[in-house]
C-alpha cells in the first residue's frame, strides 16, 4: 500500500532484442497526488514514453520485461492481470497521445469513438452516451458539438483533433491522465489554447496529470513537480521551482543552457551539451551522462565506473550526481547561472 494516489517504485522496463537488452526504464520511482501535475522531461530515448505506457499497462503481454511496483489508488498494477488493468484503463486512467491523427480511427466518427469507450465502462443506452459525447466535445471547446459528434477525424483541424482526443480521454472521468507530448504537433497559438484547456480541466476534474514532453517551456507552464530523465533513469526530481531555480544536475543545466528564451536577452551563444544522447543498448558505464558532462573531471574518476545514487539534496529535491552537493551549488551559482542571465 501507499499513501500517494499514484506511486511508482523502482520501475524497470527492459526489452530483449537481437542486439542486446534495451533498458528503456531502469529503476524509476515517483509519486503523484490527485489535483497535481508531474512533468517528465527528457530527450528522445530517455524512456519517458515507455514509462507512461507501462503505467497504463500497455506493455503487458508484449516482449517487455517489467518489474517494480506501480500503485494506483491502493492497487498494484505490475502484478495485476492484463484483464484487470484493461478494466481500469479508460475509466481510472487515460492517455492523451501526441499525434491525434494516428491515434484516432479514420473510419469512425469522433463521436462513435468516444461513445465506444464510454459504453464499455458504463451501462448506458446509445442515446445517453451520444449526449455525453456531445457534452464533452462542447466542454473542450469544439463549436457546435451536437453536429460535430458525427464528423470524422479528417474533418477536424489539428487543434480540434487534439481537443477531441482530450474529450475522449476524459469520457469516463479518469483520475489519472497521462499526456504524452500533447502539444508537440501543434502550432504555437493552438498549443497555448490546449495548455489552457488542460489546466482548466484538471482543476475541474481534480485528476492527477502526468505530462511528458521535451519542451521545458510547456513543463514550466503546467507542472507542480518535474522529473528529468536521462538514459532510462531519473537524474533530477523536485518541485518546478527546484528544477528551474536551483537545478543541481549538469544535464539539467545543459537543457536550460541549450534553450533560446524569449524572456531573456538573446545571449551571444547558446550553451549546448556536447555529444548526443546514448543508445539504450549501450548505456555508458557509471553515470550515463558522464561522456557529455562538462564537470566529469571533478568527480575523481568515479563518473565512469560507479552509478551515482539518486539522493536527496534538500526538501524532496533529488539529484543523481557524483559531485558533492556544495560543489554543485557553487557551480550553479558561479559558473552556470550568470551565463544564462548575461545580457
Amino acid at each position: 500500500m501507499s499513501d500517494n494516489f499514484l506511486d511508482v517504485k523502482n520501475l524497470k522496463v527492459h526489452f530483449p532484442t537481437d542486439d542486446g537488452l534495451v533498458k528503456s526504464v531502469d529503476g524509476l520511482s515517483f509519486a503523484l497526488d490527485r489535483g497535481k501535475t508531474l512533468g517528465i522531461v527528457g530527450e528522445s530515448g530517455s524512456g519517458k514514453s515507455v514509462t507512461s505506457l507501462s503505467v497504463l499497462g500497455l506493455h503487458k503481454g508484449g516482449r517487455a520485461k517489467i518489474s517494480g511496483e506501480i500503485w494506483l489508488d491502493g492497487e498494484e498494477l505490475v502484478s495485476a492481470t492484463p484483464e484487470h488493468v484493461r478494466r481500469l484503463r479508460g475509466k481510472k486512467m487515460a492517455m492523451i497521445f501526441q499525434d491525434p491523427l494516428s491515434a484516432m480511427h479514420p473510419y469512425f466518427t469522433v463521436g462513435a469513438q468516444i461513445i465506444e469507450a464510454y459504453r464499455i465502462h458504463n451501462k448506458v443506452t446509445k442515446k445517453v452516451a451520444r449526449k455525453h459525447a456531445a457534452d464533452l466535445l462542447g466542454r473542450v471547446g469544439i463549436p457546435q458539438p451536437d453536429r460535430r459528434v458525427d464528423s470524422y477525424p479528417h474533418e477536424f483541424s489539428g487543434g480540434m483533433r487534439q481537443r477531441a482526443m482530450i474529450a475522449m480521454a476524459l469520457s469516463c472521468d479518469p483520475e489519472l491522465l497521462i499526456a504524452d507530448e500533447p502539444t508537440t504537433a501543434l502550432d504555437v497559438t493552438v498549443q497555448a489554447q490546449i495548455l489552457d484547456l488542460m489546466r482548466d480541466l484538471q482543476r475541474d476534474f481534480n485528476a492527477a496529470l502526468i505530462i511528458i514532453t521535451h519542451d521545458l517551456g510547456v513543463v514550466a507552464e503546467l507542472s507542480d513537480d518535474i522529473l528529468v530523465m536521462y538514459g532510462g533513469k531519473a537524474i533530477e526530481y523536485g518541485s518546478a521551482e527546484d528544477i528551474f531555480e536551483r537545478p543541481e544536475h549538469p544535464y539539467t543545466w545543459g537543457l536550460l543552457g541549450s534553450m533560446p528564451r524569449l524572456d531573456r536577452e538573446p545571449t551571444e551563444r547558446l550553451l549546448p551539451i556536447k555529444g548526443s544522447p546514448p543508445s539504450l543498448i549501450n548505456v555508458p558505464a557509471g553515470c550515463a551522462f558522464h561522456p557529455r558532462c562538462a564537470f566529469e573531471g571533478r568527480t575523481g574518476g568515479k563518473a565512469g565506473t560507479e552509478v551515482p545514487e539518486l539522493a536527496e539534496t534538500e526538501g524532496g529535491h533529488l539529484v543523481r550526481c557524483h559531485l558533492p552537493r556544495e560543489e554543485r551549488r557553487a557551480i550553479w551559482a558561479n559558473e552556470i547561472k550568470p551565463n544564462l542571465e548575461s545580457a
Binding site: 498549443q191 510547456v218 514550466a220
Partner: peptide, 25 residues
Amino acid sequence: ALLSAVPIPDPKRRQGRERIRLQGD
C-alpha cells in the same frame, strides 16, 4: 499573439503574465 503564446520556461511567471489567446485555428 504569437509572442504571448510561447511558453516561458519559468514557473514563477505562470501567474500574472498577460496572455493573448487567439480563438480557433
